[in-house]
Amino acid sequence: MGKLKVYYGWARIGGVRKKRALSVMFENEMLGCRSERGQRCLRTIQDTVFERYQTDEEMDDGKRQNRIFTEYSLFLDERPINGSLERCLLINSESDKNHVSKAVREKIAEALRRAFMLANPGYKEPSSQLELKFE
């Protein structure tokens, strides 16, 4: 069996989805996901901007699922993100740190940032009164 993929993108807003969200789709099996029907389903769910292959640990989790895709979303306008693109990208990067190298995480963040700014040209980062960064 080949490697399964992870698709990063922005959720499409429409009749079902009403909120802006960063969407991360994990393939659970290759045949259904890579078929024309699977790719059409993916295109209706999100605007994909970056793809990578899953690690062995991520693939083991996918084998226990009964759907062809598993989606994880970070809603942009809800807590703890509160409309901040940079905070959204940081949370996504932190969630990937056990499986993805720092260089690849930076590429993912840059691709997501570029796609978001193209779709939302008037976006400005919300100002916060106090921000603490622990490293």
Rank of each mutant, 00 (worst) to 15 (best):
G32L: 01
Y123W: 05
N98Y: 07
R12V: 09
V104Y: 00
E78L: 11
E106N: 10
S95N: 07
N82P: 00
F50N: 01
R34C: 07
T48E: 15
M25C: 14
D61S: 11
R20G: 03
L85W: 02
Q46N: 05
Q54C: 04
S84A: 08
K107N: 06
S73D: 11
L90E: 02
E110Y: 03
E110A: 15
Q65P: 00
N92H: 06
E51L: 14
M59R: 13
Q54L: 03
M25V: 15
R12S: 09
N28Q: 15
A11N: 00
C41Q: 10
R34L: 11
E86T: 10
K97E: 13
E125Y: 08
Q39F: 08
I91N: 03
T44Y: 08
A115N: 09
Y123T: 10
H99W: 12
N98T: 03
D61K: 13
L112T: 04
E58F: 07
V100Q: 01
L118H: 08
R64E: 15
A11G: 08
K124Y: 01
C33K: 02
D61I: 03
Q46R: 00
G83N: 08
K63L: 10
N98H: 10
R43H: 11
M30Y: 04
R20L: 06
T44N: 09
P80S: 14
G14P: 09
S35M: 08
S95G: 02
Y72P: 00
R67D: 12
G62W: 09
E86F: 02
D61Y: 06
E106K: 15
A103S: 10
L74H: 14
V24L: 06
R37T: 09
T48P: 02
E71Q: 10
D60N: 13
E78Q: 12
T55E: 07
K18I: 07
V100L: 06
M59L: 04
T48V: 15
